[in-house]
Write a protein that binds this DNA or RNA. Structure first.
Lengths: 257, 257
DNA sequence: ATATCGCGGTTCTAATATAGAGACAAAGAG
DNA sequence: CTCTTTGTCTCTATATTAGAACCGCGATAT
């Protein structure tokens, strides 16, 4: 049993995205098909607590500084900067492509740390980015190691076709995941966004449950040839091992259900 | 008129701080003097949306990855890294002390960007840190340029004595603020935390309203002598001018009421 | 100049969601 | 083993919220 008011309010909050960072009361009400009175009350309550701010001229609302506070606390809790980021940076320099760490969170993968390639053309993504688990190397690597009932669960909520390469057939997906699980890594091209390749390897907690993935990504035209791929996978796996050791040592603190 | 349920829920959220990052249901209920049923419903609703996560072993709750997403969006909206941070870094290198940017948010100052000193002993603070406006150089610099009714408002909510140096008498504070306003900068020692000095200068929006402050801080034993102070203030003011120009140019987007 | 529209904000009341006490099983402590 | 404490769930009186209608304002159109 959940609180409907809070539930609605958090749903409202999710409309403040990178694509649509500001909303007027009636504008958002129309978008959500809800009475503008309700939206007004929700937005102004959030504003009272600093989670939203209202531009006094345009009267539109946007995200407030309170999120800086909470976001930073989560980041410090993860504490990846000290030990994990250097490993990622080294890997990124070695292969000359961007490297990122994706965390399992419900039915999504969340990018929690990034080491960008120094090349001018590179794969680039923001910390905090959320993607459904059935899309792309980083997420499918995670999904492949979940129990099958959770895999089915994720797919049962519908699978959106992000690009022509996105797999949207559940049976095909299950086969794909099995392959990933068997070989221990995942190679994709153009699933998450057009003309991007990715190579992901899994990371587990001390109980052997999947919690994250380490992924390398770059433009497809630089994608490794079939004969170079195994070598690159090995290098990524080696970096993943170092990170894994750190996780084991600190019995890493983020859960998957 | 606000939503009481949401209001309570956000109040609950604020108990997840750096000092107390994890809470059990009944533990938090006791702390807040609220029925544990209510807390349970609030926490589990937040959990459904990824704002909190529950450790499956200890059953305790802590902040979830959703905050990473929203925190990052706020950070990118501010977009200080590209232009303002380099200025701060240069200033920090020149004077060899930490430099930080504090934003006005309601009755608090929020640290939004930091350039740490390279010295081993240095002032250090997290992004997102919140302090009442009546404490410390960075906050008092902002408060000094607010209209008097808002100054009185802030003080009327009570003034906590953080350190022996904290000014808690409203009349004394008003005099102090006037002095800061007249000289255009603020110098304090040991107000925010023991044995720390700070020098703050104000930053305004295009309408001449105070929105932020640029502050230099370090250990008191390195605090500038009376004759060196004016020179250092000038250097800080020069950096502030550069930042000010950037704000003017982009008619800077964060509001103060 | 006047009318119209759409905006954020407010008020009202029926109807619904919530508060809060209490119960429960499970886990832990003594 | 018993006693305590935990998170979770159920119940009902009641406080809170939903949603329509309304308001005054400012921009736009006539």
């Amino acid at each position: 049993m959940t609180l409907k008011t809070l539930d609605n309010s958090l749903e409202v909050l999710k409309y403040f995205s990178k694509q649509t960072p500001t909303w007027g009361v009636r504008e958002l009400a129309k978008e959500m098909n809800i009475s503008h009175s309700i939206i007004y009350r929700i937005l102004s309550t959030f504003e009272n607590h600093g989670f939203l701010i209202q531009n006094p001229e345009t009267k539109k609302y946007e995200l407030g500084l309170r999120f800086l506070e909470f976001g930073q606390m989560v980041k410090e809790k993860l504490n990846l900067s000290d030990f994990v980021l250097p490993i990622m940076k080294k890997l990124s320099e070695e292969i000359k492509e961007s490297v990122f760490l994706t965390w399992l969170d419900g039915t999504d993968g969340v990018t929690v740390e990034i080491a960008e390639s120094s090349q001018t053309i590179k794969f680039s993504v923001s910390i905090g980015t959320r993607t459904p688990l059935y899309i792309g190397a980083s997420c499918k690597t995670i999904m492949a190691f979940l129990p099958e009932n959770r895999q089915v669960d994720i797919m049962s909520k519908g699978m959106e076709k992000f690009t022509p390469e996105t797999i949207t057939d559940p049976d095909e997906m299950l086969l794909d995941l099995e392959k990933i699980r068997n070989q221990g890594w995942c190679f994709t091209t153009g699933e998450y966004s057009h003309s991007v390749f990715g190579i992901g390897v899994p990371l587990f907690n001390s109980k052997g449950e999947i919690i994250a993935s380490l992924t390398l990504a770059g433009p497809v035209y630089r994608k490794p040839t079939a004969e170079k791929l195994p070598e690159i996978v090995k290098i990524i796996q080696y970096a993943a091992m170092s990170i894994q050791r750190y996780f084991d040592q600190y019995s890493f603190k983020l859960y998957n259900d």
